[in-house]
Design a protein around this nucleic acid. Structure first.
Lengths: 151, 151
DNA sequence: CGTCAAAGTTTGCCTAGGCTACAAATCCTC
DNA sequence: GAGGATTTGTAGCCTAGGCAAACTTTGACG
């Protein structure tokens, strides 16, 4: 299978569809954005607004880092924010945030159904939620459904 | 202890307990190393040696990128390599590689047992294998065991 | 041997995402 | 409404991990 044909045995063009490592790198590019958007939505829902200071505390980074990230999200059209004011999601941003949140919830419920402790599940869910194909998420949902409400 | 009574650093439960986002960032730092080591071990097992060109093809990056990464792994004491020669794992490197490989196998088997198609499972496994706590891996193994070993 | 393609390395550039230090704006409280 | 604390933003630095281009080494083979 591998390493028989000399040269590149993985084609460059569509390797993004085929090569798992390339896929992981692509996922990483979106991961941070999704985390920010999900968190912003969450803060707005729970406290009425999303502020730099709270985002920084939740993510465990400095405020300067958040400011920079928000600038990028603005550039990408995912949030709006006026200087010294709080942050809002655009429609596009809301779409991504909601999807991310749903994935997060699915993964968390799944891990708990699997028998993982709540605290651990929270942590692991954060790590893996950005790396799951629709097929795997569907399988997780099937599993949750089958489970008889905890035990 | 550079981070202390600085500004609002963390909110509720942690002081030193793990923030999921911080944890994910830490995982990312090791992720690449683990991928390299696992792959190097695999190449040695299957072809007798690990060469830059093959690593690059597998990872979907340029050889220059691999050379740079190998330099880092050398610095960290995880591989040995002489210029223009192939790459070997140190004992420390072997330990990490084997662990990574085992995690990979567990995740892959688990996803397949869950009902995810082989091809998709391969891709997703690569994405999530670096983000799983021992507890979750154990839960996955339990699940695999319980399965009627299909076929 | 000599040559030359393949493999490996070096160099220099780019972007992302951290950080600190400092400056500026906001807002609270009196 | 002024002053000081808090919050936000700016500037500059750092590291990692990509890339392309140019150079060097290796080794296959006529």
């Amino acid at each position: 299978m591998p390493l028989q044909e000399k040269d590149t045995y993985q084609e460059k063009d569509d390797s993004s569809r085929i090569n798992p490592f390339v896929r992981v790198r692509e996922d990483h590019a979106n991961e941070l954005s999704e985390d920010y958007l999900e968190l912003i939505e969450d803060l707005i829902d729970r406290t009425g607004e999303a502020r730099t200071v709270d985002i920084a505390a939740k993510l465990g980074v400095r405020q300067a880092t958040v400011t920079k990230a928000i600038a990028r999200l603005k550039r990408e059209g995912l949030v709006t924010a006026a200087p010294y004011r709080s942050i809002f999601l655009t429609n596009e941003g809301k779409k991504i945030a909601s999807r991310a949140r749903e994935h997060h919830r699915t993964v968390l419920e799944f891990l708990i159904a699997l028998g993982v402790q709540q605290e651990v599940a929270e942590i692991d869910a954060e790590g893996i939620e950005h790396h799951l194909s629709p097929a795997t998420l569907a399988a997780m949902q099937r599993f949750i459904q089958q489970q008889p409400a905890a035990a």
